[in-house]
């Protein structure tokens, strides 16, 4: 069973939160991925600033892709100047390819203390994501955590 995102009200709340992060951080893309409730796979459920609808179809396995890696390690992940100098192949970063992102920073979102989701901010061009933006993303993830944990 996939995570359904709770009630319509909750979905709207998360959508708003993604839009808020997009505006506040002056980035090009904000996405929220969540691990399915009965399996290890991870799906992108919410996005703001998306250039297409590909994210809705993308599912990565636990430990694969940015979302899968962040959930499996429970630690933030930073990708700079994609696809140069990335660990592994560019094809192992589906969301970066789908949204043509150059820089991204992904933070884990915990449910009852266990990493179950990922908040990703991305930029398609320009300067890398600095520490200030990373810190704001971490704070936004904590806020989302509170909302999702109800």
């Amino acid at each position: 069973m996939e995570y359904k995102g709770g009630s319509p009200g909750e979905s709207a709340l998360i959508d708003q939160a993604c839009e808020k992060v997009l505006t506040e951080l002056d980035c090009d893309f904000v996405g929220l991925a969540l691990q399915n409730t009965d399996g290890p796979d991870v799906r992108w459920h919410y996005a703001a600033g998306n250039s297409n609808e590909k994210y809705k179809r993308i599912t990565v396995r636990y430990g694969k892709g940015i979302a899968g890696k962040v959930i499996s390690t429970g630690r933030p992940m930073y990708v700079e100047n994609f696809p140069e100098n990335v660990a592994g192949k560019a094809l192992e970063y589906p969301i970066m390819l789908a949204e043509a992102l150059k820089h991204a920073y992904a933070v884990p979102i915990h449910f009852k203390g266990i990493p179950k989701g990922v908040l990703l901010i991305g930029k398609r061009s320009g300067q890398p994501i600095n520490e200030n933006m990373q810190s704001t993303a971490r704070n936004a993830a904590r806020t989302l955590e509170l909302k999702l944990n109800g």
């Binding site: 609808e53 809705k56 993308i58 599912t59 990565v60 390819l97």
Partner: peptide, 8 residues
């Protein structure tokens, strides 16, 4: 492929 890259 579709479920990885979102391309039908």
């Amino acid at each position: 492929y579709t479920s990885t890259y979102g391309i039908t």
